[in-house]
Nucleic acid binder design. Sequence first.
RNA 1: GGCGCUGUGGCCGAGUGGCUAGGCAGAGGUCUGCAAAACCUUGUACAGCGGUUCGAAUCCGCUCAGCGCCUCCA
Length: 502
Amino acid sequence: MSLYDQYPVSIYNSLKKEKEVFKPIHEGRVGMYVCGPTVYSDVHLGNVRTFVSFDVMFRYLKYLGYKVRYVRNITDVGHLVGDADEGEDKIAKKARLEELEPMEVVQKYTNGFHDVMDMFNAIPPSIEPTATGHIVEQIEFIKQIIDNGYAYEKDGSVYFDVRKYSQDHKYGELSGRNIEDMLSNTRELSGQDQKNDPLDFALWKNAESGHLMRWPSPWGIGFPGWHLECSVMSTKYLGEKFDIHGGGMDLKFPHHEAEIAQNKGCTHSGGANYWVHGNMLTVNGRKMAKSEGNGFTPEQLLTGDHKLLERGYSPMTVRFFMLMSHYASTLDFSNEALQAAEKGYKRLMASVNLIEKLGQPGGSVDKEKSAELTSVIDQALKDLSDDFNTAKAVASLFDLSTKINTFYQQPGELAKIDPEAFEYAIKHFKGIIFDVLGLRNEGEIAQDGKTLDGVMQVLIELRKQAKFSKNYALSDKIRDDLKEAGVQLKDEKGGEMSYTID
RNA sequence: GGCGCUGUGGCCGAGUGGCUAGGCAGAGGUCUGCAAAACCUUGUACAGCGGUUCGAAUCCGCUCAGCGCCUCCA
């Protein structure tokens, strides 16, 4: 029996607006598509949160034994600048500002994005397709939509005919909107005269002279519309029907709504069965966004070089902080919260490090105590299967952490644990922490240095001698000075000493 | 205006109609030469007002406060 049968996953489906038992289309296999970043500037924490959320889903589904194909695109063309109605492309605009080739801009920020994802230990997706790499497919997709009667051409551009579409399908099913409301609330926008209807959106845009991104098409020189790539690439790599589609809450409308319409308009299938939306990161209760000026770069987060940051925080502290809440809840950033997360993270890692130092379990096995141990793991897996509730799972991990610490201090307690139960619990304890939550043991990395460890052993030996001769002034000085240098010495039972690096 | 969300103890943050979430901080204790860490103990929490119910933080209604989307946004 596989783990996914043992711990069936349920997911909150934005499309149905309720939690459902997850049933993949193909037994044992999952196709997952997540809307990736637009690479025209640095990613900020909000982006990181969303991708970390989906990274955990990817990791957990694999942990359960599913074979997962995870597709996350790179948007390197297509999104229009909000206040420029002339149809100027974000990337083209940025290119002009920086006097670069558009593809130079794309490459620069794609590299940066990958570096940041790596820093936060997010596993690269199975496929990371780019919009510019799928111009041909996008053109074919548009042709089919036109053939199906849901799009029209006008002056070298092609628009999706929302009204026509809504006669046959429900437009707005994901975001809970209806066409009439939207019509009466449409804002006055200039430059929309080409469209038959303000609700229509572009599938292909005619490139004006001087526009930097241009490709030939049956409708002239131009570039693909803002929403098209995701429809096209999810269909290409996952099929007309696939399992999970994810993205940030703010993409629900219009982006995902348009995506569904394009999919149905082309293939008559709506794409994903389960739509999953991650919530926003907030600062003082407000969405972290570039326009608010309350976001910061990962570099600033590490160094603490930002007016909102009291000091820097390590990547794993931040990752752990994010996992202490549920992906569908807003998460409010504050220095206090981050500092609390940092302590919690270190506490967890300290227990992990202790595992190696534990003696042998068993001897005078207490069945109840053993069952208690495995039930904590059981609970954690149930919680993860319950819409990926990392917050709850983390609580179980802390329970286990306490138990491990007790085992270390009181070997008698460890003797009560059945060796098999112990092995099972430790395997999953580590599995959940490292494989599912994707945490890295930052302290351990620092301790890898053999030279440093050798130096530490010398200092520890000196301190032991000082203590033995009751020269507490010297032994305290060694400890205090090391503390100053970022190394915490701990006296243990039996006169042994250990150290941790901050 | 339309669609939707949230309001939990000092802070962050889970939560099922009845059983201690958890982390951080605080208090007391054990251990220790002193620390640190760890362990144990400790908190009259669920915005307000009504209603449903044997029982609601959890369901319903209203009020108040805040937020998101509706334009690019994770």
